[in-house]
């Protein structure tokens, strides 16, 4: 006991030194992270401020507040329609992808096929080619042969084909985690496969389906290449392609239109996300087995 007071002096000063060093390290870390954060936030701030600036430039500055840009955008005959077109393409692809993806993933999850995982991985790898640049010429030729150029059916087919493998891959994982006894139980009461999918599997895989829906819409919303190549008429173009046409007469990018349109362009995706998240929620009902 007598040795304790003698020892506390150096111990506490060492401890104090350590706390000071920790404190400084944390402050430095916070400052660094703030700088990185600001760097990432700058484009977002530009996205929000530039549309309200009478003369937006590529640099970030306090706007000369005005709503003229929105009025000008409303005068453009294609701008609002293109947002609608994007919605049609996004929702259309989503319906195809979620419908077919759920069926395929369920089958893939429950039926034993030799080399099943190999098939899935191969599809996943190949899918990045379908919507990618490399396959654009053959894709264009196929769609031309099918007579589906300048037709939403063609765009939907190509987009859905490119997205489906990833969707099947993700959904299969969700369905693998659903205990088989749920379905067997339903089967014993006389439910067929579609009935089981609807009553048991789909509700339990709902968070997965909700995620896939949003993800698909976001993918289609931002896709430029496929609709750009397969659609001809300006009044069919989705927003991502239309933005490409906003130039002034002198060939300069029209930043007033582009910034305003960009803000409008990003809004629906955010709204969809919040609505779906509220409506379906990313909850997961696990199995009960203790």
């Amino acid at each position: 006991m007598t040795a304790t007071p003698a020892k506390t002096g150096p111990v506490t000063s060492v401890a104090r030194n350590r706390t000071v060093r920790q404190y400084v390290a944390r402050v430095l870390f916070a400052v660094l992270m703030t700088l990185v954060g600001v760097l990432f936030a700058l484009p977002m701030v530009w996205l929000v401020l530039a549309p309200f600036d009478a003369t937006p430039t590529l640099s970030l500055e306090w706007p000369d507040w005005t709503l003229d840009n929105f009025a000008r955008l409303a005068e453009n005959p294609y701008a609002l329609r293109s947002i609608g077109n994007s919605l049609i393409l996004g929702v259309g692809t989503m319906v195809i992808v979620v419908g077919l993806g759920a069926l395929a993933a369920y089958a893939m999850s429950r039926i034993r096929i030799p080399g099943r995982d190999g098939i899935l991985y191969a599809l996943l790898l190949l899918s990045s080619i379908v919507t990618g640049t490399a396959a654009m010429v053959p894709t264009f030729q196929i769609i031309t042969q099918l007579g589906l150029i300048n037709n939403y059916v063609g765009v939907l087919l190509v987009l859905a084909g490119g997205i489906l493998p990833t969707v099947i891959f993700i959904l299969k994982d969700f369905m693998d985690s659903i205990p088989k006894s749920y379905e067997e139980s339903a089967r014993l009461y006389g439910a067929g496969p579609f009935r089981i999918l609807r009553d048991v599997v789909a509700p339990i895989a709902r968070p997965g389906l909700a995620f896939i829906s949003i993800w698909t819409i976001v993918q289609v919303w931002g896709n430029f290449l496929v609709p750009f190549i397969l659609l001809r008429s300006p009044d069919l173009q989705p927003a991502a392609v239309l933005m490409y046409t906003f130039y002034t007469e002198s060939g300069q990018a029209d930043l007033r239109l582009i910034s305003t349109f960009a803000l409008l362009f990003s809004a629906p995706v955010l709204i969809i996300y919040f609505v779906v998240n509220r409506r379906y929620g990313f909850r997961f009902h696990g199995g009960i087995k203790s």
Binding site: P179, S181, Y182, E184, V200, I204, H285, G286, I288, K289
Partner: peptide, 9 residues
């Protein structure tokens, strides 16, 4: 069933 297979939803 052994795990009862009650539908959680």
């Amino acid at each position: 069933f052994q795990d009862y297979a009650l539908f959680p939803h």
